[in-house]
Deep mutational scan, measured.
Amino acid sequence: SEIVKHAEEALERGEFVRIEHNGRVIEIRNEEALEELRRWVEK
């Protein structure tokens, strides 16, 4: 997914991403959060 790709690229640069999706906000700061995002987006 485009969202996950964006988050992965930001993590590689040492940045973090805040994503709003279906009214929820998730902050991607590490691999664990990235995995959570993947599960969340796939639903």
Rank of each mutant, 00 (worst) to 15 (best):
V17H: 06
G14E: 05
L37H: 00
S1G: 10
S1K: 13
E8I: 13
E27R: 02
S1H: 13
L34Q: 00
V41F: 12
A33D: 15
E32N: 08
E8P: 01
F16A: 13
R38F: 04
E31Q: 14
E32G: 08
A7E: 01
I28P: 00
K43F: 13
R18E: 12
A7I: 09
I28K: 00
A33L: 09
R29F: 11
E12K: 15
E42R: 04
V41C: 09
E8A: 14
E42M: 06
H6S: 10
E27M: 09
F16G: 09
I26S: 01
G23F: 03
G14V: 01
E8T: 13
N22M: 14
E42I: 04
I28R: 00
A10L: 07
R29T: 13
H6C: 15
N22R: 11
E9W: 02
E36N: 09
A10I: 05
L34V: 06
N30Y: 05
G14N: 06
N30C: 12
L11A: 03
E9H: 08
L11P: 03
R29Y: 11
V4K: 02
F16H: 14
V41S: 02
E31R: 15
A10F: 06
E2W: 14
R38V: 05
E15R: 04
E20Q: 06
I26E: 01
E36G: 06
I3R: 05
N22G: 10
R29K: 11
L11E: 02
A33S: 13
E8W: 10
E9F: 01
V41Y: 08
K5H: 06
I26F: 15
L34Y: 01
V41T: 04
R29G: 08
E12V: 11
W40F: 08
E42P: 02
R24P: 00
A10T: 04
R18D: 07
E32W: 08
F16P: 12
R29W: 12
G23Q: 02
R13G: 05
K5Y: 04
L11D: 03
F16M: 14
S1V: 11
F16D: 08
R29P: 04
I26V: 07
N30W: 07
E12P: 03
I19F: 09
R39K: 12
K43S: 14
G14T: 00
W40N: 04
R13Q: 06
E35I: 07
R38K: 12
S1E: 11
L37A: 01
N22Y: 11
I26D: 00
E27W: 10
K43W: 12
A10N: 03
R13Y: 03
I3E: 04
A7M: 04
N22K: 11
E27N: 06
W40L: 12
E20S: 08
L37C: 05
V41R: 01
I26C: 10
A10Y: 07
E9P: 01
R29V: 13
E15F: 04
V4T: 05
N30G: 08
E32V: 09
E12D: 11
E8K: 15
V4E: 01
V4G: 02
E2I: 11
V17W: 04
I26Y: 09
G23D: 04
A33W: 05
V41Q: 04
I3A: 07
E20I: 12
H21K: 05
L11C: 09
I26H: 07
V41D: 02
E27P: 03
E35C: 10
R39V: 06
W40A: 06
E8L: 13
S1I: 12
E9T: 08
H21C: 15
A33F: 05
E31T: 13
A10S: 08
V17R: 00
H6F: 15
R29E: 07
R13V: 04
S1P: 12
R18P: 05
H21G: 01
R13P: 02
V4M: 11
I28H: 00
L11Y: 09
E35R: 08
F16N: 12
R29H: 11
R18S: 14
E20T: 10
N30A: 04
E35G: 07
H6L: 15
V41E: 03
E31V: 14
R29D: 10
A10V: 05
L34C: 01
E2M: 13
E2P: 08
H21N: 05
G14W: 01
N22D: 12
E20M: 10
N22H: 14
L11R: 03
R39N: 11
G14F: 03
A33Q: 14
I3M: 10
R18W: 13
V4W: 09
E15L: 02
F16C: 15
H21P: 00
R18G: 05
K5D: 03
E2T: 11
R39S: 09
I3F: 07
R38I: 08
E8D: 03
W40S: 05
N30Q: 02
E15N: 06
I26W: 10
R13T: 07
E36K: 10
E31N: 12
I3G: 03
A10G: 05
S1Q: 12
R18T: 15
E36A: 12
A33K: 06
A7W: 05
N22T: 04
I26G: 00
R29I: 14
V4H: 02
I3L: 14
A33I: 07
R29M: 11
I19G: 00
E27H: 09
E35W: 01
A33G: 13
I19W: 07
I3W: 09
R38S: 03
L34G: 00
E20A: 07
L11Q: 03
K5Q: 08
V25G: 03
I3P: 03
I26N: 00
V41H: 03
G23R: 01
H21S: 06
R39Q: 11
G23K: 02
G14Q: 04
K43G: 13
V17T: 08
E2F: 10
L34P: 00
N22Q: 10
V41L: 12
V25Y: 10
L34W: 02
A33Y: 04
E31W: 15
R24E: 09
I28S: 00
N22W: 12
E12G: 15
I19V: 13
V4Y: 07
V25H: 06
A33C: 15
I28Y: 00
E36T: 09
E35D: 12
E12M: 15
W40Q: 06
